[in-house]
């Protein structure tokens, strides 16, 4: 494998990892608060749709990404009412959100679409650093949504571990009764966590649109990224920094699919095998991670009586 091939492999790895990382970070925040957001895939798809629609009407990538985040917030608000305040089953609700998002975005893209030519977000190349062999282009010649995804991992880590909000968030997920005894509204903390999480999932969809789709939307374009995030959260043990590494590994596995198809003896392996590798690894890793379990209160509606 040549230097050029390895360089592009790493570029693709980071590109593949960024949208997954956004959704994973959002899911970590949500689950830390005690809400299991099975609807991450649908939220991401809705964020992608909102972003692409905004671009089609002439919005800049920045404004379009804000639209994606905004739709994520609306989804989070609706989920909060259903899950936290109305105590709807979170598994059933999440499945419904995913089904709704697929149908809604496909139908809406058919009836509400501007005529502006879509573009990706501009690539921001860091001088000198981008010239570093192998990793330079991958790490220092990406768009803002990719850079921010990498920076967001330690930021979310600090937010959860080092702030009062983070402390309350973890308490809401692990010991909600204790939080309630301290006079803090568990429901409000969980609501803030869930909405923050869905905003990041919406941004994950936006990241996909402005990184890989030239600003356009395609039905079901998230292709299961939100579902993979559910597994990555478990593998990462709800730790944003581990999630960063885990998503990079998944990005690498996905990127390898395309290198392997035309790389010497590996090209003899059926394509379907390479396409399945990331998912096989995910299943094996989740199965092997025996000690990783949800906190007993995650996914369970809370009430003080």
């Amino acid at each position: 494998m040549t230097i050029a091939a390895i360089t592009v492999l790493l570029v693709i790895t980071v590109q593949m990892a960024a949208p997954l990382l956004w959704v994973t970070l959002g899911e970590i925040i949500s689950e830390r608060s005690g809400v299991l957001n099975i609807g991450a895939e649908g939220t991401m798809l809705l964020g992608a749709w909102a972003t692409a629609t905004a671009i089609s009407f002439g919005a800049s990538p920045l404004v379009a990404c804000l639209a994606g985040i905004g739709v994520g917030a609306i989804v989070g608000l609706v989920m909060s009412v259903l899950y936290i305040w109305r105590r709807v089953d979170q598994i059933v609700g999440g499945i419904m959100v995913n089904l709704f998002a697929l149908g809604f975005t496909t139908a809406m893209w058919a009836v509400l679409q501007g005529t502006a030519v879509g573009v990706n977000a501009p690539t921001l190349t860091v001088p000198l650093l981008s010239d570093i062999p192998f990793i330079g282009t991958a790490l220092f010649s990406q768009n803002a949504t990719v850079y921010l995804a990498i920076l967001a991992a330690p930021a979310v880590f600090a937010l959860i571990r080092r702030t009062r909000w983070g402390l309350r968030l973890r308490a809401a997920g692990e010991q909600p009764s204790a939080l309630d005894s301290a006079g803090v509204s568990v429901r409000r903390v969980r609501t803030s966590g869930l909405i923050t999480g869905t905003c990041l999932a919406g941004l994950g969809g936006a990241c996909l649109v402005v990184t890989s789709a030239s600003g356009g939307f395609v039905a079901n374009m998230t292709a299961g990224t939100g579902f993979i995030a559910l597994g990555v959260v478990i593998l990462a043990r709800w730790n944003p920094l581990v999630a960063l590494l885990t998503t990079v590994v998944f990005g690498l596995l996905k990127a390898l699919q395309f290198q392997a198809q035309s790389f010497g003896p590996l090209s003899d392996v059926p394509n379907d095998v390479w396409l399945a590798v990331p998912y096989i690894v995910a299943i094996v890793a989740v199965a092997a991670a025996r000690s990783t379990r949800f906190a007993p209160t995650v996914g369970v509606p809370w009430s003080r009586h």
């Binding site: 593949m16 292709a223 990224t225 996905k254």
Partner: peptide
């Protein structure tokens, strides 16, 4: 390159970049 999807833009982009 076969990507096993007609709508996965990220996979299509990755294949083309390769």
């Amino acid at each position: 390159k076969y990507i096993n999807s007609f709508s996965d833009v990220a996979a299509a982009q990755a294949a083309a970049q390769t």
